[in-house]
Design a protein around this nucleic acid. Structure first.
Lengths: 347, 347
DNA sequence: ATGAAAGCGCTAACAA
DNA sequence: TTGTTAGCGCTTTCAT
């Protein structure tokens, strides 16, 4: 119950018998550049120590024009009910990098409820402007307000490609093209000559890169890419798989885990052996990292993407020319042991 | 390429043709108290909307106003490597409540020290001051720092009891005393007359409430509480369990999951049947909510504690008299089916 | 009903 | 080598 208020530089200046500017210089370790005498320095430090000084971040931020806050925006809950959430790895990467850059993360949860009591201009995405910049997570990034923020020069980095391409929005992406080239290469090496690509047609716009990488890979290796099977995973039955195999296809590239799962199950039902009769590659990440899945899949470096996103944003803060930058990270094909050479029966 | 810099209240004042004070009143929803005309109000709001205004939190908190930001500080990672993290449920509760109160959460990750532990006053920069208040999570709280924050009048709510009791720090706690009374009651009802309490002696200060609740419960029911077994879970072997059972003990209350696990395993090895020969109650929460554990345990309402913590903090912002408030939440004994009446052999 | 002005704690340009 | 001063964006008191 002695002194309630926090000592300011002013107090220290008085206590040490110097000016406030001197205090500022000493306390921010710039005595040398400003020619503060050794003695003065010591007096200031002693006084600061004795009074228990700690700088007022608000004042520092106000002066510096930076808050040291980085917004994180998702279109879904940040802390999801299910802990093995898709975003989780990204968030770990973000936190890690933020921590080492001395930045803090703001979770814009108030914007989730559009009907919140705050006024329109305070809510919505303008609230994001209180941060120095923002990282956007989530697939449905088709947001006009986001676009507008970026256009107004607000530093934004998207994790994953924005659904509407925007040369002014920096992003960190998984390099699907390369990994699909590699995947097709591997199948080709094993002897596969006819592959089937299957996925959701409605999601094609967001996944063009995967599909195009696949086509390019097939083209390079002279593989029959066939016509993709745009189908709902629910409708995949044993008969479907049997027909596919009978048509000479020896490997399937499935866009989603749902597809891979459906195919795997249907194959079992149809007596088609995987991978002996049919090799299976899934382009989606298993939602649960620990899960064993009986097919080959692609590992998206989500943790690293999180880190890189924050890193990119950090650069963007000082250097607006980074605005359109795209950081493409290599994916790794995993679980290759679940692939096999096409069986002799297919020959 | 239009206007790069962020609009301030000054800009809006000019755009709307009013004074800056008027802008401040309107934007913080205090038009009525200050008698701002309906028309002026509309003009200001329109201008703010059009210019994309968002308040400068640094300036707001420097001046003593509200930022609408709530700090979250943990002494460990907020986004943990393991998704079934202990804090997860708390965080969900916090996010939920923040969202409904129109507040945003700031994860103070910048305070992370080089090592794993974190400090609020990292580098002398108390970044928390940017927020209106903060929720502190984590068992190993550095009480000096909490004390200091609280003494400076910064609103703080601790989730879990501070290790050193502090009448000025508000907290949300699990009511261990009550649930231990209930637990002992249940064992008593089943016919147990001799119970053993086991745990880490060095953690006793933080867990006094559990132990005292146990003692009180035993006292009430005339049960032989015996001397607690302060032991390392690693040193619990079959012989230990056999000896315990031979001494007439028919139920064990274990402080940690590690103890419970060790006892359960050792019992198996010693041919002691649980729960027939020995009922087991664990006072710790299984880290993984989905896990089946073969003993009775206590369910701490973490989600609800998260909500209540934010709620309490919200009240504290307007009403400093809430400062010492302790919100105690009831725990639920769970998995009672794993308890049994003492076997006739013990008679 | 609205405006002018002070000042929160800090940094940096400029004086002495 | 050290001090003076302006101002970051905001809230609030006091005048009008």
């Amino acid at each position: 119950m002695t002194k309630a208020s926090k000592p300011s530089q002013k107090d220290i200046a008085i206590a040490a018998g110097v000016s406030q500017a001197t205090v500022s210089f000493v306390l921010t370790h710039r005595s040398v550049e400003n020619g503060i005498s050794h003695d003065t320095q010591r007096r200031v430090e002693e006084a600061a120590q004795r009074l228990g000084y700690s700088p007022n971040v608000a004042a520092q931020s106000l002066r510096g024009g930076r808050t040291g806050l980085i917004g994180v925006h998702t279109y879904e809950r940040i802390f999801p009910a299910s802990p093995d959430h898709y975003y989780h790895q990204f968030l770990i990467g973000l936190e890690e990098e933020a921590s080492s850059l001395g930045l803090d993360l703001v979770l814009f949860t108030s914007a989730q409820r559009s009907t919140s009591s705050r006024s329109v201009f305070e809510g919505g995405h303008n609230r994001m402007r209180l941060a120095d910049g923002a990282v956007i997570l989530g697939a449905r990034k088709n947001d006009d307000e986001l676009q507008r923020l970026a256009d107004e020069g607000f530093p934004i980095v998207s994790v994953g490609r924005p659904s509407r391409p925007n040369p002014r929005i920096a992003s960190v992406r998984a390099d699907y093209r390369s990994v699909l080239l590699t995947t097709v290469d591997q199948l080709a090496e094993l002897g596969h000559r006819r592959i089937l690509y299957t996925g959701h047609i409605e999601r094609l716009p967001a996944r063009t890169e995967r599909f195009e990488g696949y086509l390019e890979g097939c083209d390079r290796r002279g593989i029959d890419a066939g016509a993709p099977a745009w189908t709902d995973p629910m409708s995949i039955r044993g008969q479907w798989v049997a027909d596919v195999v009978r048509s000479g296809v020896t490997a399937i590239v499935a866009e989603t885990t749902a597809h891979a799962h459906a195919i795997h199950t249907a194959a079992l039902a149809a007596g088609v052996h995987t991978p002996a009769d049919l090799s299976l590659v899934c382009l989606d990440v298993s939602s649960n990292p620990g899960d064993f899945v009986p097919w080959s899949h692609i590992v998206v470096p989500r943790y690293e993407m999180g880190r890189r996103a924050l890193h990119l944003l950090h650069r963007l803060l000082d250097d607006p020319s980074v605005a359109g930058r795209v950081d493409s990270l290599a994916c790794e094909p995993a679980h290759l042991s679940t692939l096999a050479a096409p069986s002799s029966a297919a020959a």
